[in-house]
Structures are given as C-alpha cells and as structure tokens.
C-alpha cells in the first residue's frame, strides 16, 4: 500500500465539543473542537498566528472568527470555513500525536475515527474527504463501537457514549453493530447547556451569561439526584460580579437527560434475544465527556429496576475511551485490511 516503512496507528474521537487522539507511539491528547482565524491584521499581529485551535482559540475568541466545525458529532455543512476548520483540527490532532507534515512523509498513518452511531453514508463520505491526504488509510466506525472494542465489551454488553452533540447507545452482540443495535439521541451535553442557560436566564433575568460560562459550570458541577451542596457561581449582573445559586437549574437540566436515555436503553435491551437480556442489563457502560455527570449511572441503574435491575458503570477514562478504542482497532486490524482502506 505504501513504501513508508514506519507505521503509526491512531484512534481519533472527533467530538462536537472536544476531540481526542490516541496514537501507537504513546501520544494521547485532547483538544477543544474550536478553530479560529484572526479577524484582522491587528488581531493577527497580537496573536502572532494565522490559525488558533482548541483552548487557545477559545481564550482569544474576541479576536477570532471562531468556528466549532462539528455538529451532532458530524462535519457541519454549508460553510467552506467550517470545512477548513475541520481540516485544521485534524492537522492539529495529528501534529499533537507527533505526526506533523514532515513526519507523515516517512510514516504510514493508519487512522480509525469514530462517528455517531446513526451517521449517514454521506456524512462518512464527507469525513473521508476531510481526511484526504492527511492519513494513508482510514477506517470509520461507530463511536460506541470503538469504546466497546477498547474495553473488550464485545458480547452481551451495552455502551452509552454521551458526548456534547449526541448520545450514542449500542448493544454489542459479538458482531459489528448493525443499525438495529444502535441509536443516536440528540439529548447530550449541548442539550443540557441549552436547558441550563434557559433555566438560569428565567431565574436571573438580569444576569449576563455566555455559552462558554454555562459549559464550564456544567462540567464542574453537573449532577443528577440529591446535590452535595449548593452550586454557587459568579456572573455579572448589570456589570457587577454577583454570586448566583444555580443548584436547582443544574439539577433540572441534567435530570432532563435521564428519561430519553433510559427509555432508549430499555428499548434496546428489549430487542436483545431473551436469554441474553440479563447479561446485557448487567454490563452497561457509560463513556463520553457528558457521562461524568454525577449520579447519572445511579439514575440509569434505577431505571433498570423495572425490568429486573442491572449494573451501570462508567469507563475509567471517559474522555479517551473512544480514541483508545479506535487505536485498539487500528492496531488489531490486519495489514491486508488496511491495504483495502487506502485513500
């Protein structure tokens, strides 16, 4: 497939909010999925860069034409700038993994990328286009499958991958999951952010809050069930920094995730062959950045009580579960298969 003798495998979790890369050379990195270009000459002079990516872009956002090029875990469409942003994000992830342009000249890069379970064929084609020329061979798999592969939950198990754009559920029956084995919900981290913003605005109409502030509060304080204490944050009210108690809005917004996920989880279990349903109920794994909501595993386990109970646990490293799984797939796939996936 290639004259390049050195082979590096990478697993990439291209997320709506954050993207992760795990490489066979030991590199593991996570990046906020934001790309920004300086808005003018002055901004470029101050920032001293033509393009900023990740946290750096977020921190300098007033001076940038900022793009979040993924939506629902997929490439946004319609804007050439978003297409360029995805490409920049991929280049950045590869560079972080030690696979800059120069390194790629002598290294065969085999990449596995996770996409939402219900991504359409056309979305996968767009992703291939975005990767063209950056990697030597590309395998696209469903995100929850990548997680399942990484933790070897391949038989009678369910993975619930809660990201920012989508929540993907997948039952593993010892085969590559079909459409019948998977579901994608749009109730995920971003949805919680929207609810939280709305609820805070209703409670504190004078407060000035941004989506970035809400996201940070959620990541720090999110919970389901009983609070461990009041959630107090600071935001400007009429220009004056003011402490706001957002305990109740936080609880309501986060608990809104439980019914759709629980309902879909129960529906998928009901479709498993009867003799294996109990095994699946006792092997449910949460992954993805938004699975870190405290008490979510307990709430989902409680939902399982109505069908006989079960066990819901979180993966050890939810942020890297997808990219680590992708790397495991990339490493295990035989050379012969990679040769078929060139381009």
């Amino acid at each position: 497939m290639s004259e390049k003798k050195n082979v590096v495998c990478v697993g990439i979790d291209l997320g709506t909010s954050r993207s992760a890369v795990s490489a066979s050379n030991g590199q593991r990195h996570i990046v906020d999925s934001y790309v920004g270009w300086p808005v003018d000459m002055v901004a470029r002079k101050i920032l001293k860069k033509n393009v900023l990516i990740g946290r750096e872009a977020l921190d300098s956002r007033p001076m940038l034409d900022l793009h979040r090029p993924l939506e629902r875990g997929l490439l946004k469409e319609g804007s050439e700038k978003d297409q360029q942003a995805v490409r920049q994000l991929l280049i950045h992830l590869l560079e972080l993994a030690g696979l800059g342009e120069k390194e790629r000249e002598n290294t065969q890069v085999r990449a596995v990328v996770g996409v939402p379970a219900e991504a359409m064929r056309v979305n996968k084609q767009q992703l291939r286009t975005a990767f063209a020329g950056l990697v030597d061979a590309l395998l696209i798999v469903s995100e929850p499958f990548a997680v399942a592969y990484g933790i070897e939950a391949l038989l009678h198990a369910m993975v619930i991958d809660i990201g920012a754009g989508t929540t993907d559920l997948c039952v593993m029956n010892g085969r590559y999951p079909t459409e019948e084995d998977q579901r994608t919900l749009l109730n995920a981290g971003d949805w919680v952010d929207e609810q939280l913003t709305r609820l805070i605005a209703a409670r504190y109409p004078e407060a000035s809050i941004s989506p970035y502030m809400v996201r940070e509060w959620k990541e720090r304080y999110s919970f389901v069930g009983e609070p461990h204490g009041n959630v107090l944050v600071t935001a400007p009210v009429n220009g004056k920094p003011t402490q706001l108690d957002i305990t109740e809005p936080m609880r309501i917004a986060c608990e809104g995730l439980v019914p759709p996920i629980a309902e879909t989880m129960l529906d998928l279990i009901a479709r498993v062959e009867p003799e294996f349903q109990e095994k699946v109920r006792h092997s449910i794994v949460l992954a993805g950045g938004s699975s870190a909501i405290r008490g979510l595993d307990v709430a989902l386990a409680a939902a399982l009580q109505e069908i006989g109970g079960g066990v819901v646990r979180s993966v050890e490293d939810p942020m890297f579960a997808g990219s680590d799984g992708g790397l495991a797939i990339a490493t295990d796939a035989p050379d012969g298969d990679w040769e078929k996936l060139v381009g």
Binding site: L139, Y149, R175, Y176, D332, A333, L341
Partner: peptide
C-alpha cells in the same frame, strides 16, 4: 475481534 474487524472493514 477478528470477525468484528472484518465486518467493520
């Protein structure tokens, strides 16, 4: 794993 990888490819 081998079977699943074949199916994924």
């Amino acid at each position: 794993k081998r079977r699943i990888l074949r199916q994924a490819v």
